[in-house]
């Protein structure tokens, strides 16, 4: 949550969401979270649970590894 170092590069979730022309609100509604959670996630401030990560990956037509693999290497908060 707060206090974690932010990623300088664009988060894969954000990049893929933009590529699919989805807004944060639309993605949030699709995966069943608040828009603030999508914001926190794209800023790298929040590492989602495996269930949420799966839902996001499914919504964006990608894999958890592609979306959050780099976060794990950076030691993101579990």
């Amino acid at each position: 949550m707060g206090g974690e170092p932010r990623q300088d590069a664009t988060h894969p979730v954000r990049a893929l969401r933009k590529a699919q022309k989805l807004t944060q609100a639309e993605l949030a509604q699709e995966v069943g979270v608040s828009r603030q959670t999508v914001v926190a996630l794209e800023r790298g401030d929040y590492a989602p649970s495996v269930f949420l990560a799966l839902r996001i990956a499914r919504a964006l037509g990608s894999t958890v590894e592609d979306l959050f693999g780099s976060q794990q290497e950076q030691g993101g908060r579990e």
Binding site: Q24, A25, R35, Q36, V39
Partner: peptide, 16 residues
């Protein structure tokens, strides 16, 4: 929340 749900553009500053 209703305003946020119908927003057409991203807003990265309202997480806090």
């Amino acid at each position: 929340e209703r305003r946020g749900a119908t927003k057409d553009e991203d807003d990265d500053d309202d997480v806090d």
